[in-house]
Design a protein around this nucleic acid. Structure first.
Lengths: 399, 399
DNA sequence: AAACTTTGTTTATCCTATGGACAAACAAAG
DNA sequence: CTTTGTTTGTCCATAGGATAAACAAAGTTT
């Protein structure tokens, strides 16, 4: 059934409009709001008062006059409720409790030792209970749980495939909703990161963004008009498994010569292991396995072989980005995931390749940036996805 | 400035709702409409009467009773105005005059002998004038001109690059709007075809479609929620120039081993020319150059070399589709352009490859079809784009 | 101190959807 | 032919919300 218009809808539209303006611009006065939204003064006053009654907004006191009566300052009440954001990785659960603005109130991390569903789900429940217990008293309490998961999730929040955890067909969302009677959103790492970057990172001012999460694999998220694009069943964003080398090796996904085989952190580490004397270097760092930290440190020490390797991987990243940019023409490309730690050595090769392979786009306002949020993009994004369920946006489109 | 809600907006939303329902379901009664739209009976009656006054809808007479009073049948008035759709190709301008439903009233074709702007623009004007003169008297007259163009068009309807015509930075939309004082929409072939396929072809019942136009090059169009995705500046859809073979040849676009080098009609013809005795065959058909018609005919005659060639190209098409499907997860993929004429020999290799390379998607409701509209998709799509400007849809989104 | 500005509220008005009453037109059953 | 019930469509009173204009409050500027 299509959505019809009536007076209540009008109110909903305008109320969202006002609340969004307050969320983005507070501290702000009623007078400023009516200029920001284009609504009538009295309409703004009414809606603001209702928002105050429902605890989402509060008044602080008089602000500075600009030649007349002092304005009353309005604030978004970020303590009206709390959200839980979780990043479930293969070796670690990291979870946060945030207020409605995404400020971190509490952080919990639990290492994982097995990949068994029962074990991990038990720890997950435990983490959530801990965070719930830490949430201060508030009008709305815990408004929802957002979970970033390393695998393919469908529209219903069910895990379809998780190569690293070897899970299949797990109704994660349903399980959590049953256990906690709270709204739960489950999504893959890349989509969650996209949301995080949109709300807190470089995507704040873009309407149209492509987020590329480069970790052990490569996943992508597409933001269109400030909304996460999902595709038909929620399976979009598997760009890591698109063809990079038609004559390459067969991937476990069934495809041949996948991009992520040439540009992921996994590949980077595999290649770096081949560098002569790397074993001793790893020992020197007091570690048993090579990781991103070591490589970044070596690059900082001007290790030519490592720097060269980064440049090579950077080129491969750039090739994939050129392809995506040609298909989607985003305003902004954000590169996230652990790979983003090597921005310094990657940025130039990436940009050069894009300039070479997608010149028209490169010369037309395209911005390519590395995430500054690091792994936080994921866990913050998870919390945000939960929060955004609360503030579902009612909007009008024409065209 | 964001869009605010008021009573006029409500009316606009509901009026579009009713008109769209009539456009899709006519013949239809007021009573059916209120069930279809979810609006109140009296609201529907009011809006229908206004739509009748504005000539978009008319009553025919009583319909058959279903056990009570006979309904009054309402029809969408497809003759309330006319639109012009044009497909500008390198060798040919084909143009149609349609009513508001997309029925072709008049068709004009003018061959092109040069690629000079002045020459072509002159003929274009001539074609448009002819069609305008053929339009019957109507309340709204010519409502707009839609133009499909073989090149890269930006948001303002300006031609940026047209490799085959060698045009650059031509403000085609502005020029036409000045000359005819009518709304003009210019878009590239693939995007226009996407619109055509959405309104008249296989995309009618999908909310989410990927259209792939395979001609001399390959272009793509993405339909999200029944709306054409444009990207930041309107440059999206250049999938033909994404990497297919990382070790392939350098394309004029700056990229290496572009997909369209392995899967386009141009490539098909180039390869077919190498087949022994092809020159004589071309002579036998009474033509000077090899074309798609000849190859299709040969395949029908069971020419093994040609069939094999189609299969090979089909595989390459399938590889590219697998990639796009993984990135975008569309509900439906429609293959259009001249290549679609070889559906019979392409469909199996395409589907097999997608099954192999994107199994999860293949097994999840993904439909892959060939356009049944042929070249008409383009010229019809062009007319539709013009019509859709008149019926700009005011809609509300939540989420 | 007077005049002007800015901010925010109050009031009367306008617009549109809604629900219920109502009338017209018809089918089916007796 | 009559009765009953259904379907279709219109009319009217009502409700809810945005808007403009008037108004009040609290400043600043001259």
């Amino acid at each position: 059934m299509t959505l019809t218009g009536d007076q209540f809808l009008v109110k909903e539209i305008n109320k969202t409009l006002v609340l969004e303006a307050i969320r983005q611009h507070s501290p702000v006065s009623r007078s400023e709001l009516y200029r920001l939204t284009g609504l009538n003064k009295s309409t703004v006053s009414n809606l603001v008062n209702e928002l105050i009654e429902s605890h989402f907004v509060y008044e602080t006191g008089p602000g500075i006059s600009s030649g007349g009566r002092k304005p009353v300052i309005l604030m978004f009440n970020n303590l009206a409720g709390y959200a839980i954001g979780i990043n479930l990785k293969v070796e670690l659960i990291s979870a946060i409790l945030t207020d409605l603005k995404g400020n971190v109130i509490e952080k919990v991390e639990v290492p994982l030792t097995t990949i068994l569903l029962d074990d991990i789900y038990g720890k997950l429940k435990c983490v959530i209970e801990t965070l719930i217990s830490k949430a201060p008293e508030s009008p709305y309490g815990i408004v929802g749980i957002g979970l970033a998961f390393p695998g393919t999730i469908n529209d219903n929040g069910s895990v379809l495939i998780a190569p690293t955890l070897k899970w299949k067909n797990i109704h994660l969302k349903t399980m959590l909703e049953k256990d906690f009677s709270l709204p739960v959103v489950v999504n893959n790492e890349a989509k969650v990161g996209t949301q995080g970057e949109t709300d807190f990172g470089l995507g704040k001012d873009s309407t149209n963004m492509l987020y590329i999460s480069i970790g052990h694999g490569i996943g992508t998220g597409l933001m269109i008009n400030k909304e996460l694009y999902k595709g038909n069943l929620g399976f979009s964003g598997e760009a890591g498994h698109t063809t990079f080398d038609i004559n390459g090796e067969v991937c476990e996904c069934g495809n041949v010569g996948c991009w992520q085989y040439y540009a992921s952190v996994k590949t980077l580490l595999n290649r770096a292991e081949q560098i002569e004397g790397m074993n001793e270097i790893i020992n020197r760092f007091g570690k048993t396995h090579l990781d991103m930290d070591i490589l970044v440190q070596l690059a900082k020490e001007d290790n030519q072989e490592v720097v060269k390797l980064f440049e090579e991987i950077g080129k491969n990243i750039g090739i994939g980005i050129s392809n995506l940019v040609r298909i989607l023409n985003p305003e902004l490309v954000v590169i996230g995931g652990i790979m983003a730690a090597a921005e310094q050595w990657l940025i130039n090769p990436v940009k050069e390749i894009v300039k070479e392979r997608a010149r028209l786009y490169y010369e037309s306002q395209l911005r390519i940036c590395f995430s500054q949020l690091g792994d936080d993009a994921i866990v913050l994004g998870a919390a945000t996805i939960a929060i955004s369920q609360l503030f579902k946006k009612t909007r009008v489109t024409i065209g």
